[in-house]
């Protein structure tokens, strides 16, 4: 194994990790506030569409990125209106959101952007660093990758050390108590949902702006579901979410490349199923240990009726 090969493997894993890390961070914050949004896949697809479409039309990937975040957030707020203001069931509404996102993104994408391509939104470092066979392991990534990595300590710090983060956790832990102390449960949850949508949107845009800079329907291929199970796998903890994302990234790269690399002793579907299997194992482990810090927020998925 040459160093170049190792670099190639690492950059491949980072690429696979980034979208689920972004969407997972967003969903982590949403779930910490007590809301279960199963619409991650739909929000990622809307982000993928908006990011690609705006980049194609304006030739500005930064505008595309912002549009992706906005598209994800808008779709998330639609979810928010239904589950927070109209008290619809979170699971059903989230599933509907995914189906809606798949449909709308496919409709618009295939009508307007089929066959269009844009340049890859790649590294912003000079080629001497970004294309170097070894150094690209640090400098060869899209800005979206660095953004995702910076968001990990930011989200961890926000949740653990800021007052706003404390209030957000309180709302997810015991909504009625938070309300009786005088915090706006609904307001906090709207903000968390919008953040989660924006992060999922950026995660989706990574597919159309970096991995394959063109439109094809349902190109996120279920990664939204992977992000959801990543949050559970991580036991609702930010740093574990980073570790889990890379672990899932390794499993995904095995799914894609194990056959090509010559060890085809298990079918690729085995690797594709592994993240979900590992999530079940992690859940069992969490509940058998009764680890309070690593369990779901107590109000997760429950509607709040003051």
């Amino acid at each position: 194994m040459t160093p170049e090969f190792i670099v190639l493997v690492i950059t491949g894993i980072v690429g696979l990790t980034t979208p689920i890390l972004l969407a997972g961070l967003g969903e982590l914050v949403v779930e910490k506030s007590g809301v279960l949004n199963l619409g991650v896949e739909g929000m990622m697809l809307m982000g993928a569409l908006a990011g690609f479409g705006v980049t194609v039309m304006t030739f500005n990937p930064w505008l595309g990125l912002i549009s992706a975040a906005c598209a994800g957030a808008v779709l998330a707020l639609l979810f928010g209106v239904m589950v927070l203001s109209l008290n619809s069931n979170q699971v059903a509404t989230g599933l509907a959101l995914t189906i809606f996102g798949i449909g709308v993104s496919s409709l618009i994408g295939s009508k307007m952007f089929q066959g269009r391509i844009t340049p890859v939104f790649g590294s912003v470092f000079p080629n001497s660093l970004a294309k170097d066979p070894i150094l690209q392991v640090f400098f060869g990534y899209s800005p979206i990758v660095y953004f995702a990595l910076i968001m990990v300590p930011l989200v961890a710090w926000f949740l653990k050390s800021t007052r706003a983060g404390l209030i957000l956790r309180a709302v997810g832990e015991n909504d009625h108590s938070a309300h009786s102390i005088g915090y706006s449960v609904i307001g906090v949850r709207y903000a968390a949902i919008a953040f989660g949508g924006a992060m999922a949107g950026i995660g989706g845009a990574y597919f159309t702006m970096v991995i394959t800079p063109m439109w094809s329907n349902e190109l996120t291929a279920g990664r939204g579901w992977l992000a959801l199970s990543l949050v559970v796998f991580a036991g609702w903890r930010t740093w574990r979410l980073l570790a889990g994302a890379f672990f899932f990234g390794i499993l995904m790269s095995l799914e894609l490349y194990a056959k090509g690399a010559g060890f085809s002793f298990v079918p690729s579907q085995f690797w594709a199923a592994m993240p979900f299997l590992m999530t079940v194992v992690a859940l069992t482990f969490i509940s058998s240990r009764g680890n309070v810090g690593a369990s779901a927020p107590a109000c997760l998925g429950k509607p709040f009726l003051p």
Binding site: R169, A170, E173, N174, H176, S177, A178, S180, I181, V292, G293, S295, P297, A298
Partner: peptide, 10 residues
């Protein structure tokens, strides 16, 4: 409060 407004996991 009679029913404590506490957050168990904190």
């Amino acid at each position: 409060f009679q029913h404590f407004s506490l957050f168990e996991a904190m």
